[in-house]
Design a binder for these strands. Sequence first.
RNA 1: GGGCCUGUAGCUCAGCUUGGAUAGAGUGCUGGACUUCUAAUCCAGUGGUCAAGGGAUCGAAGCCCUUCGGGCCCGCCA
Length: 626
Amino acid sequence: MTLRLVYDEIRLGVKQVCHVLGYPEIEFDVSEASRPEFGDVSCNIGFLLAKTLKKKPLDVSQSIAEEYKKNLGEYVSEVSAHASGYLNFVANYSLLVPQVIYSSLQANYGSIDLGKNSKMTIEHTSVNPNKALHVGHVRNIIIGDTVARILHKASYDVSVLNYVDDSGLQVADIIVGFKYGGYSDTPPDDQKFDHYCGDIVYVKITERYETDKALTELRSHVLQELEEGTSDLAKFGDEITRRVLEEQLKTCWRLGATYDCLNFESQIVRSKLWQVAFEKMKSMGITELEQEGKNAGCWVIKAESEEDKVLVRSNGTATYIAKDIPYAAWKLGILEDPFYYKHYAVQKTGRVLWQTTLDSKETAMHFTGDRVITVIDSRQSRLQNIITKIMSDFKSKPDSYIHLGYESVTLSPDTAKTLDLDTGGKSVQMSGRKGIYVSADYVLDVLSEQTFDEAKKRNPELDEMSLVKISEQVAIGALRYAMIRQDLDKIITFDLTESLSLEGDTGPYIQYAHARAMRILEKYGKSPNFGASLDAVNTVYEKDMVKIIGKFDLQVEDAAKNLSPKIIAKYCYHLAVSFNAFYEHVKVLTADSEDIMNARLCLVYSFKETLAKALQLLGIDAPERM
RNA sequence: GGGCCUGUAGCUCAGCUUGGAUAGAGUGCUGGACUUCUAAUCCAGUGGUCAAGGGAUCGAAGCCCUUCGGGCCCGCCA
């Protein structure tokens, strides 16, 4: 059981009491008490009934409390009316403690049946395959990966897609660089290919467009050939794209993200899905041929409060959005699937990664969803709103296509300075084109190096391999947590120095709590006896921890319903805080008696199991030592 | 000009969806706790006209309106 049962029981109990007292039936709130001295659970019904009953909130609550006391039920030990008007409850810990601890031992603890196994498709990452990932991309990946993990825990049948824009302008840029700009397609020394393409070729060729108009024209030709996909140049482009993609995926995997399918834009273009979608839009009256004005001769989408969006140019060619619409429709299973699926790789977790192909000899599969989430930063909101509107028309359901937007990651003035950029004290937007970014690999390497030294200092007896493993876990924990801990619509100002500080509200703080718990259990050397009495668990520190452990599924529900990964991040942090307070104030291995020690060991075990499960939702490893 | 987001402690942020108890964390600063289950920890102190004004309400950081500050987006580019 979890705290959910306590809330449910109280909700029902209050309702029954109101019925007995002849109070009107209304919606009221049962929630966690804001302070420990108020008890465990609070109810606001006193305020809500005060008006209709023409009584003071306190009087209402008192009358309810009196009646409630006649039958406290299983999970409540005390009920009282507070002077403020709140109705407060104290939980029955002699029941709560063992039940929460036993529940937390179950492998699926925290799972809820919100999705009822319905199909949910989530797309994230989708970085142009012409450069290495920077910290801005990392936010996208971590949000997408974390939300996918949470939805899976909430019983959705989740498919994860990574869209590969292999026929866009950015890829064309580096192809121009290789074919006409004189850049070798073999990177110098041991530089990763994605870094080479992004740091050197892409940035340099972009600079040269300024002065060399001929190069700009070549780019248009390259772009056209990439879309057609038949020429040698297109084949070369495909080869380059796949080499970059392979390197990008290494970084994604290092971050702990995994996918089900890679969707190649070039194949969407060649599959003629667009034509099907376009006809559908015409027949549904979603798009119309503009007769006059500046867009005369274009097929446009009329927007209510904004400018019309051109869909097909007056020369008959489709605009950028014409690639996104059929893809979105495909994701929702609205259009007939033109793709077959080919094995790409087996990922660390054993999950198979597939890729789209137009080759009919390959397998037919399904990665489409009843609902679709697309993780893209909120600068794309206008475009995504148009797509959302079209999809709701197509599907005739309003919220089947969800744009999960988030604010961008900018660089702090100090970090910008390390790139020789004086921003005058302001933070600056990252730009791959201008070479203004901090790469994900670099941040992870620096973090990993620092944590390696720290781990070595603390654990001098550990071998190199173990230390490397720990430092990598901690580095990724730090970065993932930093990307997820605040709200999606807050800008993250990335500061390299600050990102290396691993104290307080950080991933490593939480991981450290887990490592501490592990050491206690390890030193004890045996399994705690879960059959014995847990009555000895009775300090405030222990009760507080039990309460938080018992809230796990409620937090998963909240996070899944609101697509809010930060809820799980906060949960992990609070869990860790409660354990660290316990650790400082309550001794386990030197407890006064065997019984007390055993009870506390059970709690420590329950804690580390729950924390590990919660951290797993964040894609953060729970280290045994650090 | 239009659209979206945002403003809470020196700094970074919770809380706002669903109004209610003394507005919470981290960090910073000051001081304290390692012969003890790992100090990546803990404890105490410091620090807030919740951007401003108005409205509805018994009651507003939260709801409504106005104003101001900051960010992003608005191409027959992708």
